[in-house]
């Protein structure tokens, strides 16, 4: 496990370079927004965080399907990695959003659909992690959390589409046509940076899960169920 080169560290390096360059351009090179002023620069971290948080939870959804279908440990490890990363990013997303809201809308929080569905997303997936922590049997932990993730995932498309479906304080998605070209560049660079950073988090957390499971199985053989022996 140790000493061997692990490919994800190259991805981390790339992520850090992209995030540094993107943030530098966003804070020092890109123009301020004509009505919003400098505070608009929060967009270069907020929008990539939102995209990659939803992407991580989508990976969790796919991994949960794989885990229930096959029962393989690898899928369950991917479930933990992507759920935990998605929850961390959603937590940061809400914090950045509150800071941006206070400066542009004038309030820290408002119960509009986008904010509410995003908070629900955070609570549901954090709940999945709490559920995992409370189940001892690895087999049951994997199935229960996979089921919970699939049901919780119903909220993710709502987070994305709610601003189009219903009146809200939060604006609808911007497109390259509604965003100045000078602002699109740092946004794109940071989005790829965040994507690679999340990849590193997911892979590291998944490897940790597999290693933990291996230790559990070698040190506590009496806790292995018949089922696990069959699948080992």
């Amino acid at each position: 496990m140790r000493g061997k080169f692990q490919w994800e560290h190259a991805v981390l390096l790339l992520a850090l370079v992209l995030l540094t360059v993107g943030t530098y351009i966003g804070l020092a090179v890109a123009p301020p927004e004509r009505h919003m002023g400098d505070v608009q620069r929060i967009m270069y971290v907020h929008v990539p965080t939102a995209w990659i948080a939803m992407l991580s939870l989508t990976v969790a959804f796919v991994a949960a399907i794989g885990s229930l279908w096959s029962g393989k440990h690898k899928w369950d490890a991917a479930v933990v990695g992507s759920t935990e990363t998605g929850v961390v990013l959603t937590g940061l997303l809400l914090s950045q959003g509150m800071i941006w809201a206070r400066a542009t809308w004038g309030v820290w929080w408002d119960w509009d659909v986008r904010l509410t569905t995003s908070l629900v997303m955070f609570i549901l997936f954090a709940g999945v992690l709490a559920l995992r922590a409370s189940v001892d049997s690895a087999e049951r932990r994997a199935s229960w959390s996979a089921v919970a993730i699939i049901v919780a995932y119903a909220d993710v498309p709502l987070v994305y589409f709610c601003v189009r479906w219903w009146r809200s304080l939060h604006q609808v998605q911007s497109t390259p046509e509604t965003v100045d070209a000078a602002m699109m560049l740092p946004l794109r660079i940071n989005a790829f940076g965040m994507l690679f950073l999340a990849t590193w988090f997911i892979v590291r957390r998944a490897r940790l899960e597999l290693a933990q499971r291996q230790v559990e199985e070698t040190t506590l053989p009496e806790r292995r169920s018949v089922e696990e022996v069959q699948h080992a």
Binding site: T23, L27, P32, M36, G37, D38, V39, Q40, R41, I42, V45, H46, T49, V88, G91, L92, S95, Q96, I99, W100, R102, A103, L197, F201, R204, R205, L208, A211
Partner: peptide, 29 residues
């Protein structure tokens, strides 16, 4: 509310949050 102060707060919160998560992974390993 000042724009730059909010920008610095948002980027700091994000950076600190990501570092804490990375540190927690390292510690668990």
């Amino acid at each position: 509310v000042d724009g730059w102060a909010s920008v610095i707060a948002a980027y700091s919160v994000t950076t600190v949050g990501l570092i804490i998560y990375a540190a927690s992974l390292w510690q668990r390993r």
